[in-house]
Write a protein that binds this DNA or RNA. Structure first.
Length: 632
RNA sequence: GGAGCUGUGGUGUAGAUGGUUAACAUAUCGGCCUGUCAAGCCGAAGAUCGCGGGUUCGAGUCCCGUCAGCUCCGCCA
C-alpha cells in the first residue's frame, strides 16, 4: 500500500542546487540614514538628525541634533559629561559652564534615564581624552541647546551590559531590561535571523501563509491552552500546539511550498529552553522529497551561521538512526562535541556471576558501561550521588569500578573473574585511574540513564565548533505503560517506512517512522516527518492509537476527508526559532531572546498574567469557577 | 506531581557555633570640584532580614508551613 514514501523531484536537480547555492542577498542591518524611502514628514524631524552610535570623526564640525536617554553623568562642577544613549550606541555630551550659564544650569538637573534632545557641534577630542573603549570615543558633542523631553524615576537597576541582578527584577521591569544594549542587540539579532529565514524561503518559492490561532483541541500531544467561546457556551477553542493540521491542509490546497514564522502554545511544565508560547519556523512541502527537505533545512541553518557568525558549516549534516544514537550516546539528541560513548557489554556481562547483570539480560534488558576518564578523583560520596541520580532517572542502581594497577577495586569485582574483568576493561578502552560505570536494566532505561550521566560527566574541553546531526528512523510508536496503549512517538500523521508496513499489525513497536530531528550539540532544534497522505492508512493509525472510528471522525474527520480529495505526498519540518536564536547568541536560556518571556511557573512578572477576571466576563461565557478543594 | 538551590536598605553582597547599635560596595540626596568616561573628595538619608507560625530570656541565624524565582526529574506527539 502506498503510504507516503516521497519520490525525488525529477524535473530539476534541486537537491544539488540547494547544496551548492549560497543566497547572494545579505541581510545586513542598515543604518537608518541609508533608508531608501524618504518619509513624507522627514525622519527624526526636529528632535534628532543622527544616531549616537553611528557617529565618527567624519562628522567633526557638523552641527547635529541627537535624542536619547541619559546614561552615566560625570559632574566636574563647571563641566559635565553625559553619556547619551540611543538604540545605536553611546555619544559623549559636554556641557561647559563657559559656553552659557542657563544651559549649564539646566544640564545640572539631568539624571539617569531622562529623555533629552540636544543640539551642538561634533568636535574631535584631544589626543589624551580619547576613549578607545567607545566606538565614538574620538569625538564628543559640544552641546549648545537642549530640551528635556521627559524625566525618569531612578531605575531599579543599571541600564548597561553585564549587570548582576535578580532575573525577577529584570522581568518585572522588562521594558528597562530591554533598554540595555545587549538586550537590544538580541532583539536585533533575532530580527536579522527571521529576515534571513523569510528571504531564503522566498528565494525557494515558499509561500508564507497564516493559520488560525483559535482552533480546535486535539486529543494527542501536549496539553492545550483553551479559550472559551461566548457564542457557544461550554465549547472551547484551543491555541495551536503547532499549525500541523493546517499546513497539511495547505498541501491538499496545492500550496506545495509553505512556511510560516509562527507562535505555538503548549500548556506543559517549563524549562530553561521551554516557554508556554514559543516560535517555530514551520515548513511543509509537496512533491519535494526528504533529500530536498534536508538540503533546504541545512542550507537555511548554514546561512544563519554564515551571516550571523561568519562560520562556514559543513554540509551535508551527519545522519544517525535513532537506535544508534540511543545505543552509542544514550540520547535521541546526542551531543557530538565529545566522544565518551556508551559501551555495549551484553555478551560479556552474561558471563559474570553478578545477578543484577544476568537477570537484566534474562529479562531482555541491556548492560552498558560508561568510562569516566580520570574518574579516580571521584570520592565515595560522588559515586553515591551518581547512584542516587541514576535511581531518580529510573534505573535500579549503578555499579562502579575503579580501574587500578592490579585490576578492579569495586564492591562487585568478586562476581567477575580476572579474564572477564580484563575483557571488559579492554572493551571500554579503560586505563588505570579511570572509573567505569555500569547500568543493567531495560534497554531504554539503560541508555537513558547512562546518556544522562554522559552529559553530566562531560569533559570540560568540548569542541567549540557546532556539530549538526540528523537523527532519523525514529520508532513510529511507543507504548504508554500508564494508559496501556500505543502512542505516536512524533505525531499521528507521521508516515511509517514503507518496508515496515507489514509490521504494523504484528509488531507495531518495531515500525520505523519517516520522522527526523535536527540536533545541534545536544539540543533538539527541529523535527518533522513525511506525512501520511492516504486516508485509509491514516484511519488505520488512528485505530492502532486506540481512537475509535467515531472518535477519529469526530476529532479529525476534516483531515481524513481532505486526504480523500487528492492529497499530494507531503512532508515538512519545524525549527524552534527561540532555541536557534539562543544558540546563535550563546544564551543558556531562551528567555534571553524572547522579549517578554514567562517564568518557570508560566506567569508574566510584568503584567501579572495570568490573573482573575470579572464575574461578568465569566457569566458571558457561562463559566463557573470550582471552589478550591480544602485539604483533608 | 517530585527534588535541589535562592530570598537581608533601590541594587549586589557579608552576617561560624542564636546575644541586643544588621556590616560593606554601589545607587540616591546635599556640598566641593573644568577633561571625565565605573570620574574624584566630604556628608546625609535609606532594612521591622519574602510572608506566617513555633522553639527560646532572646531568632536574620534553629524548626514547621507558605509564597516567589531558578535548575532538574516526570511531562513536553
Amino acid at each position: 500500500m502506498e503510504s507516503g514514501e516521497q519520490q525525488e523531484l525529477p524535473r530539476e536537480s534541486l537537491h544539488e542546487k540547494l547544496l551548492q547555492e549560497q543566497p547572494a542577498e545579505k541581510a545586513a542591518v542598515r543604518p537608518p540614514e541609508k533608508a531608501e524611502v524618504t518619509l513624507p514628514a522627514p525622519d527624526i524631524p526636529d528632535k534628532k538628525t543622527h544616531y549616537c552610535g553611528l557617529l565618527n570623526t567624519g562628522y567633526v564640525n557638523s552641527r547635529i541634533r541627537l535624542a536619547g536617554w541619559v546614561g552615566r553623568r560625570r559632574d566636574h562642577g563647571g563641566l559635565i559629561f553625559i553619556d547619551l544613549r540611543d538604540r545605536s550606541g553611546v555619544m559623549q555630551l559636554v556641557f561647559d559652564q563657559k559656553l552659557g550659564a542657563g544651559l549649564f544650569e539646566e544640564s545640572e538637573s539631568l539624571r539617569s534615564e531622562y529623555v533629552v534632545a540636544v543640539e551642538g557641534e561634533v568636535v574631535r577630542r584631544s589626543e589624551e581624552n580619547i576613549n578607545p573603549a567607545l566606538p565614538t570615543g574620538e569625538i564628543e558633542l559640544r552641546v549648545e541647546a537642549m530640551e528635556v523631553l521627559n524625566t525618569s524615576k531612578t531605575p531599579p537597576f543599571y541600564i548597561e551590559d553585564d549587570i548582576n541582578v535578580d532575573e525577577n527584577l529584570r522581568l518585572r521591569y522588562r521594558y528597562l531590561d530591554l533598554r540595555r544594549p545587549e538586550m537590544l542587540g538580541r532583539l536585533q539579532l533575532r530580527h536579522r535571523a527571521v529576515k534571513l529565514v523569510r528571504d531564503y524561503m522566498d528565494r525557494y518559492d515558499f509561500l508564507e501563509v497564516e493559520t488560525p490561532m483559535l482552533t480546535r483541541s486535539t486529543p494527542e500531544g501536549a496539553r492545550d491552552f483553551l479559550v472559551p467561546s461566548r457564542p457557544h457556551p461550554g465549547d472551547f477553542y484551543a491555541l495551536p500546539q503547532s499549525p500541523q493540521l493546517f499546513k497539511q491542509l495547505l498541501m491538499v490546497s496545492g500550496v506545495e511550498r509553505y512556511f510560516q514564522v509562527v507562535r505555538c502554545f503548549r500548556d506543559e511544565d517549563l524549562r530553561a529552553d521551554r516557554q508556554p508560547e514559543f516560535t517555530q519556523i514551520d515548513i511543509e512541502t509537496s512533491f519535494f522529497g526528504i533529500e530536498n527537505l534536508f538540503a533546504l533545512t541545512e542550507g537555511l541553518v548554514a546561512l544563519l551561521w554564515k551571516e550571523i557568525h561568519g562560520v562556514e558549516i559543513k554540509r551535508p549534516f551527519l545522519r544517525m538512526p535513532y537506535s544508534e544514537a540511543m545505543n552509542r550516546f544514550g540520547s535521541d539528541k546526542p551531543d557530538l562535541r565529545f566522544a565518551m560513548e556508551l559501551v555495549d557489554l551484553n555478551d560479556l556481562a552474561v558471563k559474570s556471576q553478578f545477578k543484577v547483570f544476568t537477570s537484566a539480560l534474562e529479562g531482555g534488558g541491556a548492560v552498558k558501561g560508561l568510562r569516566v576518564k580520570g574518574g579516580q578523583k571521584m570520592s565515595r560520596k560522588d559515586l553515591d550521588d551518581l547512584t542516587l541520580l541514576a535511581r531518580q532517572l529510573g534505573a535500579r542502581g549503578l555499579a562502579w569500578v575503579f580501574v587500578e594497577e592490579n585490576g578492579w577495586r569495586s564492591p562487585i569485582s568478586k562476581f567477575f573473574d580476572d579474564a572477564l574483568m580484563a575483557d571488559i576493561t579492554s572493551r571500554m578502552e579503560a586505563e588505570e585511574g579511570d572509573v567505569l560505570l555500569f547500568v543493567a536494566d531495560r534497554w531504554d532505561t539503560t541508555c537513558h540513564v547512562l546518556g544522562y550521566l554522559r552529559r553530566h560527566l562531560a569533559p570540560e574541553d568540548i569542541a567549540p565548533e557546532p556539530h549538526f546531526l540528523w537523527v532519523v528512523d525514529f520508532p513510529l510508536f511507543h507504548y504508554d505503560d500508564e494508559e496501556q496503549r500505543y502512542e505516536s512517538d512524533h505525531h499521528p500523521f507521521t508516515a511509517p517506512r514503507v518496508e515496515d508496513l507489514p509490521l504494523l499489525e504484528s509488531d507495531p513497536l518495531a515500525v520505523r517512522a519517516q520522522a527526523y530531528d535536527l540536533v545541534l550539540d545536544g539540543v533538539e532544534i527541529g523535527g518533522g516527518s513525511t506525512r501520511i497522505h492516504d486516508s485509509t492508512v491514516q484511519s488505520g493509525i488512528f485505530k492502532l492509537l486506540g481512537l475509535s472510528e467515531e472518535e477519529s471522525r469526530e476529532k479529525f474527520g476534516f483531515l481524513l476527508e481532505a486526504l480523500s480529495y487528492g492529497a499530494p505526498p507531503h512532508g515538512g519540518i519545524a525549527l524552534g526559532l527561540d532555541r536557534l536564536v539562543a544558540l546563535l547568541t550563546g544564551d543558556e536560556s531562551i528567555r534571553q531572546v524572547i522579549p517578554f518571556p514567562k517564568t518557570a511557573a508560566a506567569s508574566c512578572l510584568m503584567t501579572g498574567a495570568p490573573a482573575g477576571v470579572a464575574g461578568k466576563q465569566l457569566e458571558e461565557l457561562k463559566l463557573k469557577l470550582q471552589k478550591q478543594e480544602e485539604e483533608e
